[in-house]
């Protein structure tokens, strides 16, 4: 199965402010895209738009599976994981409760849950309340759903930043395994990823483009 994500001539707005315009991207199975750009240029908004959380101001996002175009499919519900800055962990709940909830809600199995816990080395954290975790540990807990529920497109917003060196290496392994398994990854980054990626650099629109929007 090959999958391809086609972004055509997207423009994004935040309120009345034009963030970026004329963004094009084609990513097929095995592609890793690193998304770069200055603060506030719209990297997060772009990822959220790919996930389908916010409609683009202009342009289209299409998903093609084995040469047939998938119309009217919600990308986030079926094909992708979006991991933002917020880990969505309730401070009053334990790690195992939150993981079980993510797994049940998104349609994972108990086996996949156990495998994800083992792979991300979360075993020791399971009976802690999430408020007791460090930033890196929280990030690892939230990463578990990438493994629990297999979906081809990963939309990741700066996921490596809070991790320590050992876990960064682990996560890079996981990413590479995902890509060699035919996955697609779009990752907003400040530091370049330690493997081959294609870069997509977002820049502010010119005054002319702002005027036309």
């Amino acid at each position: 199965m090959t999958l391809s994500l086609n972004v055509q001539d997207i423009a994004l707005k935040k309120g009345h402010k034009l963030l970026v315009s004329n963004v094009n991207l084609t990513a097929t199975s095995g592609d890793a895209i690193s998304l770069t750009g200055a603060n506030g240029v719209g990297k997060t908004t772009f990822l959220r738009c790919l996930a389908g959380f916010t409609p683009p101001h202009r342009g289209s996002i299409q998903l093609v599976e084995n040469d047939s175009q998938l119309d009217g499919v919600s990308i986030i519900e079926n094909y992708s994981h979006y991991l933002g800055h917020a880990e969505a962990l309730n401070p009053a709940r334990r790690v195992d409760q939150e993981l079980q909830f993510h797994c049940d809600y998104l349609g994972g199995t108990d086996l996949s849950l156990r495998e994800a816990i083992a792979r991300l080395r979360l075993g020791a954290l399971l009976d802690l309340e999430t408020r007791m975790l460090s930033a890196g540990q929280r990030k690892r807990v939230s990463l578990a759903r990438l493994l629990m529920v297999p979906r081809p497109i990963w939309l990741l917003d700066e996921v490596l930043s809070p991790l320590d060196i050992a876990h960064r290496a682990l996560m890079v392994d996981i990413m590479q395994a995902h890509l060699s398994g035919g996955g697609i990854m779009v990752c907003a980054v400040h530091d370049p990823l330690p493997f081959d990626t294609r870069a997509l650099h977002l820049t502010r629109p010119s005054l002319e483009e702002i005027g036309n929007a």
């Binding site: 009345h16 402010k17 502010r204």
Partner: peptide, 15 residues
């Protein structure tokens, strides 16, 4: 007025 002001400050900061 608000849109114009945002556009101006935006132009000063960027590009």
């Amino acid at each position: 007025y608000r849109a114009l002001r945002a556009r101006l400050s935006f132009a000063e900061e960027g590009n």
